[in-house]
Write a protein that binds this DNA or RNA. Structure first.
Lengths: 146, 146
DNA sequence: CCCGATTGCTTTGACAATCTAACCCTTAGA
DNA sequence: TCTAAGGGTTAGATTGTCAAAGCAATCGGG
């Protein structure tokens, strides 16, 4: 069971790796793409925070993504210090081509479960998340044992 | 739901990050430790394959782990080209201190479900894994659309 | 209105980790 | 014994990150 979750993580990780290779970018850049897709256009610093990067790293990541034609920099007209980063048409299309079918199939699979079953699965996921969060807290603090 | 899985992944990722920091190693080294814990002593090349590293990278990763006192190199007496890498007592203890409580709590949580419920969750995880695996295959090949 | 402080992004230099390609040393086979 | 192949380590180049300094643009008190 715990193994099942682990295998799922590994498989997802593999997909990320393959997706990055196909897009011709690295994992960090892919994470940026993912955030942009999920949350829409962001400023450089928002993107940095969302992807867990420092400003400098974000700048070069955006450089690479722009080079690859996946995102565009647009200077904010109101505050011209700001740079808004948004996906290009190609960026959106490429993301869709990779993750669209995965999301579609996932939705289709979920439809095979009843509402009650889905609630149970949701409960399982929620408890698992609570567990992980609690232990993350333990590891963050200096506490060695519970 | 898909979001639930995503959040779980992120939380696990955070735990890995914190664990690595606490052990004073990087994420790659942590992955090596994890494989050694799961599968027991491995040769350098087996470990490289298990962790998705090239030979050279594996050598330096083992160097760092040995430096940190977490693993030991043992030359195979039968075939003296081989080097078996295994956890030291300290390595085993540190791994246990970090992941032991997490695994214990996870087991305890699972006991709150009935056998039937657990089977359902297992089904969910199995289908999700099948999905990811299938799409990994799609991305590996040159196929653009399904 | 103007000048210092602040904010947002980029650039720079140092550093860490990886990969590829050589290079031992050991083993197996002719 | 001599040669070829296997297992691991080393060397040089590349890549990606961070911290700190730099450059514009904006804000706010006098």
């Amino acid at each position: 069971m715990t193994r099942g979750v682990q295998e799922l993580q590994d498989a997802t990780d593999l997909i990320d790796e393959l997706a990055a290779r196909r897009l011709g970018v690295n994992r960090t850049d892919l994470r940026c793409l993912s955030r942009l897709t999920a949350r829409g256009p962001l400023t450089a610093s928002e993107l940095a925070a969302a992807a867990g990067l420092t400003g400098g790293a974000a700048t070069t990541a955006i450089d690479r993504l722009e080079q690859a034609g996946l995102v565009e920099r647009v200077r904010d007209t109101a505050d011209r210090r700001r740079v808004r980063v948004h996906l290009t048409g190609k960026g959106r299309a490429d993301v869709q081509e990779i993750w669209g079918p995965i999301a579609d199939d996932a939705r289709a699979e979920l439809l095979r479960f009843t509402v009650g079953e889905l609630e149970l699965i949701e409960t399982f996921l929620r408890r698992a998340l609570a567990n992980q969060t609690r232990h993350a807290e333990r590891l963050r603090g200096g506490i060695a044992a519970p």
